[in-house]
Nucleic acid binder design. Structure first.
Length: 274
DNA sequence: CATTCCTCCTGAGTGC
DNA sequence: TGCACTCAGGAGGAAT
């Protein structure tokens, strides 16, 4: 599932190829992927617009256009966004294909159809609710220890639930929440406010370290994730707990546990996480 | 306001 | 082999 490192990897790939290209056509196989405006509007009005750059907030990918509008794409669980210098490689899960005037294409595919595309003026970006209410970017200076310390203190939920809350912090999903808590040696079912000051500091560092390493590895390809060139990431080879139920903990060699926490399948080591 | 539950969707896995 | 069933999960919205 694409989380911050995967979306950032895709953004980085698109930044290399999209700026300067001009949309020529939009083919829509499943209009449900386009939330706003109506799919027909995108088909008639997007052609002629030129890409000026790319951006990302949390798991929201942004493609900026020369009329001060922006395409916003959220891949949710199984979405993929693949650029091709020629015709798109499509299957029954390809829902939208953007073509550029030079014959190149950008294909949006999504098995579970949870992924969403918006096209809005930059001035109306805050009408996308999930985007408007996002917490700080974990790798930016907006995210600092005193913020985490303050937020953790006032929450009654488990620390796993808090890490998954996009309003607390932008971009974490199920995989990295588990990996971060393992690195910080904190059990996911702990109440957020029960963490000691030292645990909060370990957590703060773990968030930034795990995300930075995952970006360096170009993301985690457990199942569906591919980068903008259709290539796999590498971080699945570095996972310590996620998807490793009953295997040995790399830190202490005890068996990894899995149970449901915050409604999500959650992986942890009862021996070295406390 | 904070939190929990339900919903969207399809493919993979399980049991019979 | 086929069928019914459960599970996986991001996030919006309803319910509590």
């Amino acid at each position: 599932m694409p989380e911050l490192p995967e979306v950032e990897t895709i953004r980085c790939g698109l930044e290399q190829v999209l700026p300067g290209r001009v949309f020529a056509a939009v083919e829509i196989g499943y209009g449900g992927s386009i939330k706003d405006p109506a799919a027909a509007d995108v088909m008639t009005r997007l052609p002629g617009k030129r890409v000026t750059g790319t951006g990302r907030r949390g798991k929201y990918l942004q493609i900026f256009l020369d009329d001060d509008s922006v395409l916003v794409i959220h891949l949710r669980m199984t979405g993929q966004l693949v650029f091709n210098e020629g015709a798109a490689v499509t299957d029954k899960h390809t829902h939208v294909v953007f073509s550029f005037t030079d014959g190149s294409t950008l294909a949006f595919s999504d098995i579970r159809k949870f992924g969403t595309i918006w096209w809005v003026p930059i001035s109306r970006l805050d009408h996308i609710k999930g985007l408007a209410t996002l917490g700080p970017e974990p790798l930016s200076a907006d995210f600092h220890f005193s913020y985490l310390n303050r937020e953790v203190e006032k929450r009654t939920v488990t620390i796993k639930a808090l890490l998954l809350n996009q309003q607390f912090l932008a971009g974490l999903g199920n995989i990295y929440a588990d990996e971060i808590l393992h690195r910080a040696q904190i059990l996911p079912q702990r109440k957020a406010r029960s963490l000691s000051r030292q645990e909060r500091q370990h957590l703060f560092s773990a968030i930034r370290e795990v995300l930075a390493e995952a970006i360096e590895c170009r993301g985690t390809s457990m199942s569906d994730y591919r980068d903008s060139a259709g290539a796999l990431g590498e971080f699945q080879n570095r996972l310590q707990v996620y998807g490793r139920r009953d295997q040995d903990c790399p830190r202490c060699q005890k068996k990894i546990s899995r149970s449901k926490v915050a409604g999500r399948g959650t992986h942890y080591c009862t021996s070295c996480q406390h």
